[in-house]
């Protein structure tokens, strides 16, 4: 297969070109803008690293970073046990599991800006089932002014939206395990936990790493849903990284926004690199075992 290298590159080329033009060109533009004070795109001044200095000295940036990291941590801690649990509950290869996979996929097809609309309607005191129930309970749920309630609401919405993806990916990992493994474990008298720990979890590792990468990045940079719920409020309690960036863009602060974007892309690259290192280490450990 040695002569195939060039031909293989030709096959990859269209994808690389497409992403190069529409991905790399904008990234270079962002990098370029980040060194300028921009009034209009024709009327701009070189400021060097000024925006970067301002950003890394700004306590707001670290506060937003901390909020985003906490949000991502909570998302992972909630959605992964839940998603893997759901995948384990589903009976393998039956109509029931096919039905539940369909149900789990439904929140994924809801346009992102409608997810907050649906949920705000659900908890509204006028029409919402949950809203009316809370009124009946006499429980003062106030996502507008109570930061804990805002956080809880966004976490519930995000879980509703994405736990299906984690479950579908986990199910795809679990269902790729041959049945003979389970028979062998049953003969050895292995407990449910042992089966999970030594048969299912290792098989899940790779696909869950992928799910982790997607969930970590999407929750770290959550924008649409969080903005629509409370626009970062109350008093900035849910002002995540992307919301701060969105605010700068809306305020036409293009120079600082570009510098911020570059920093965010660096965070993305860092996470992607950590992910690759971890996956590769796992793979080479696998090869050693064989």
């Amino acid at each position: 297969m040695h002569g195939q290298h060039n031909k293989a590159w030709l096959m990859v080329l269209p994808a690389v070109l497409l992403l190069g033009v529409f991905g790399v060109v904008p990234l270079i533009a962002v990098l370029n803008y980040s060194f300028f004070d921009i009034f209009t795109l024709q009327d701009r001044f070189w400021v060097g690293g000024e925006w970067y200095q301002a950003l890394i000295r700004s306590p707001d940036f670290y506060a937003a970073l901390a909020r985003s990291l906490l949000f991502t941590l909570l998302v992972v801690l909630i959605q992964f046990p839940l998603g893997i649990g759901i995948a384990l509950l589903l009976p393998k290869g039956t109509r029931t599991s096919s039905f539940f996979l369909m149900v789990l996929a439904v929140p994924l097809v809801v346009p992102w800006n409608m997810i907050p609309i649906i949920w705000l309607n659900l908890i509204s005191e006028d029409f919402g089932f949950v809203g009316q129930f809370l009124v009946w309970l006499d429980w003062p749920f106030d996502y507008k002014f109570n930061p804990f309630h805002t956080w809880a609401l966004i976490l519930i919405i995000d879980t509703w939206h994405w736990v299906g993806l984690v479950a579908i990916l986990a199910y795809s990992g679990v269902s790729s395990i041959p049945g003979s493994y389970f028979h062998a474990a049953a003969i050895d008298g292995a407990s449910r936990w042992t089966v999970f720990r030594f048969i299912q979890l290792p098989k899940l590792h790779a696909v869950m790493m992928m799910a982790l990468l997607l969930r970590v990045m999407d929750s770290l940079m959550i924008y649409t849903e969080a903005f629509a719920i409370n626009a970062g409020g109350p008093e900035g309690a849910t002002s995540f990284l992307s919301l701060e960036l969105g605010e700068q863009i809306r305020g036409f602060d293009y120079g600082p926004a570009a510098a911020r974007s570059v920093v965010y892309v660096l965070i993305v690259l860092l996470v992607a690199w950590a992910f690759q290192t971890s996956l590769r280490r796992h793979n080479s450990a696998d090869e050693d075992r064989v």
């Binding site: 991905g23 533009a29 962002v30 990045m217 974007s261």
Partner: peptide
């Protein structure tokens, strides 16, 4: 990496 780059970052350019 392109999949996980947030769209907000690229929106202006």
């Amino acid at each position: 990496t392109f999949r996980i780059t947030p769209p907000v970052v690229l929106s202006l350019p």
